[in-house]
Design a protein around this nucleic acid. Structure first.
Lengths: 364, 364
DNA sequence: ATGCTCTGCTAAATCAGTTTAGCGACGGGG
DNA sequence: CCCCGTCGCTAAACTGATTTAGCAGAGCAT
């Protein structure tokens, strides 16, 4: 790999000029007094030889590598990582940079390895990413250079990019209000222990805040909230069963994320309630399952690609300290409708299929 | 980032030795006649100064960068990429290497960029990964160095790693046979156009082959097959409705992947059939949804982490040309049981699912 | 003729390592 | 006493770029 490559000296020789001249021409240096003809010859020689600079040699001198480190806690388990990386990759390519990826897995030894590895390689900057939106501590060793936090905050004076969870909360609430939902809106997914701990997640509180403010502005209060230990389908399922066992049935359920909403779908399906005719469901994240559910789940999408892209922009183009909030667009699907005029009553389970119009659902 | 670092010259000076001596000691060179005391002094000096070699300088001379390029067609969209990357990352770290990630998005210009970028950076090897198991053409420019194909084959003489889809097919079939399913096993997900095109996917044919061979060895033939244009939930849904409209109802359904199986769950749920009491469902991939479904979906897992890990091993430790098949372990959950003694009959659905010649029907 | 300023270009240093070639001291054999 | 080999170590070349410092020649004014 990469033997036989023409060097700058080869180009200079072929152009009949010095390495200095060749270097300056190829780097487009201003203020040099090299003739137009010299430019021509250098470009021609470089072209003919298929010259490409050796980045190791260049960065030895310049201490620039055109490489960005992407350090994250977990890349694998969450499918959101892909979006962040993809966005970063795109923006990096546009700026002729490349991404070095490492993972700490939340392990101090691995983090140490990752940091040494990127420091040894003299990366131009570091994107320090968390897979769950949260606050974190930035290892001091990397603070010598450019750092952008992605999907995370910190107490340090750095730029960081976050999804606009609060705005998404507002959007979600507005969507329900616009359909005529008022006093029978339930919420699933708060977590007593974790939501207040910014080291674990900032999302819950911000989303809730957006929801509450918007509802309050319309003079509406949440009907109930059901707490969940985690945001997994099984918890959404149990929470929904709990919800349905209460005297006053909701006209709409806001789930804190799509996995909870999936659980809600399962519970509602078992009980024979139809979405959105009997009950609307709306949620956050735009997990792939949101589009696979029947009916499709309306949800405020986490803008992962834009976030990854934004992080690179802040790192390379500058853009100051503090937060950059990326809007979370609402994916409108079929899970939200106007509330039924009558309060829906759960059918006894085991009675058979819900009275959904199957053929219209099949026509997809 | 990385200024103020001690250099080898600093270490040598502090140890009272030459750069040569320091270099040799730190690299653990055999056959050098440096005294034990000299070793001590160098190690001590390096320790005290927190010396770390500058990789750019080193690789300028040695043409080794301790960096592997991970080139894939698509990292974002599929959540499988994470597993591949994670496995590769782990194995790379164990060997003191780091991963440079690029994405071609199947675009020739992007591929060109990616290749130049990694060639410029003198990576030690390339993992060329596809997100859908398939055959691909390796760009000749990278054939100068070490290359391993991940989740892909090629006609070139390179090592490649694939999931053992055929073995998984066998496992799946055996699992059903072991539960007593025989002549009422249906299959969902073959695709007329694509499955035969190895540029698109190798998985379908291999899985089917494993299934057919195993069943044949037990004297069993598939009851029916329903074709699907893609492997998405909606197609699994339609295919299942189609399947249920046939006179002879299956006791088990094999889905070509979990997303199809999810669609099958939806259709079975609507029609009031219970999994696994009325019908068993088994599948491939171990998508996250497999564990979220109720009941949990039994499925042969794509061993992404192991595959990524294996690719790095082949690249760095050697291991010869040709295929390395990584077994696909079965995740046993609750979706498979013994067939009901009586043939399950779908409850009369008020809305008739489409009735047509199934085998020729292409679910849309 | 002298000094000065431009113009157009180059030699050499530099970055931080690895590697080759070889040097001085010492001991032993002839 | 001389030659040779081993021991323990080092000077210097080398990797491929960037960058500093400066040189030769032309043109112009004095």
């Amino acid at each position: 790999m990469g033997r036989d490559r023409a060097t700058l000296a080869d180009v200079a020789r072929r152009a009949g000029l010095s390495k200095t001249a060749a270097s300056m021409v190829l780097n487009g240096r201003e203020g040099t007094r090299l003739s137009a003809e010299a430019h021509q010859r250098v470009f021609a020689a470089a072209e003919e030889l298929g010259y490409r600079p050796n980045i190791a040699a260049r960065s030895l001198r310049t201490r620039k590598t055109a490489t960005i480190a992407f350090v994250s806690d977990i890349v694998a388990t969450t499918r959101f990582a892909g979006g962040l990386i993809r966005g970063a990759l795109d923006a990096a390519r546009e700026r002729d940079h490349v991404l070095l990826i490492t993972e700490t897995q939340g392990d101090a030894a691995f983090e140490q390895y990752a940091i040494e590895a990127i420091l040894d390689r003299q990366v131009d900057g570091v994107i320090y990413a968390a897979m769950a939106t949260r606050r974190l501590a930035v290892p001091p060793a990397i603070l010598g250079g450019a750092v952008v936090l992605l999907n995370a905050t910190s107490s340090t004076q750095l730029p960081w990019v976050l999804p606009d969870d609060q705005g998404a909360g507002a959007t979600v609430a507005e969507t329900l209000l616009a359909q005529g939902h008022r006093d029978r809106i339930a919420l699933i997914g708060r977590n007593r222990q974790k939501e207040r701990d910014p080291e674990i997640s900032l999302a819950a509180e911000a989303r809730l805040h957006g929801i509450r403010e918007t509802l309050a502005a319309a003079g509406v209060r949440l009907l109930t909230e059901v707490f969940c230990p985690e945001w997994l389908p099984e918890h959404g399922y149990t929470a929904t069963r709990t919800l349905l066992s209460r005297p006053e049935a909701p006209s709409a359920i806001i789930c804190m994320n799509d996995r909870l909403a999936f659980g809600a779908y399962q519970a509602l399906g078992e009980v024979g309630l139809s979405i959105p005719d009997d009950i609307s469901v709306i949620s956050f994240d735009d997990d792939p399952i949101a589009s696979w559910l029947r009916p499709g789940l309306t949800t405020a999408a986490l803008p992962h690609e834009e976030m990854g892209r934004k992080a690179v922009e802040l790192l390379l183009d500058g853009g100051g300290e503090g937060p950059s909030l990326v809007p979370m667009p609402l994916r409108r699907r079929r899970s939200v409708a106007a509330p039924a005029s009558t309060v829906p009553s759960p059918r006894p389970p085991g009675e058979g299929p819900p009275a959904a119009d199957v053929t219209s659902e099949v026509a997809r």
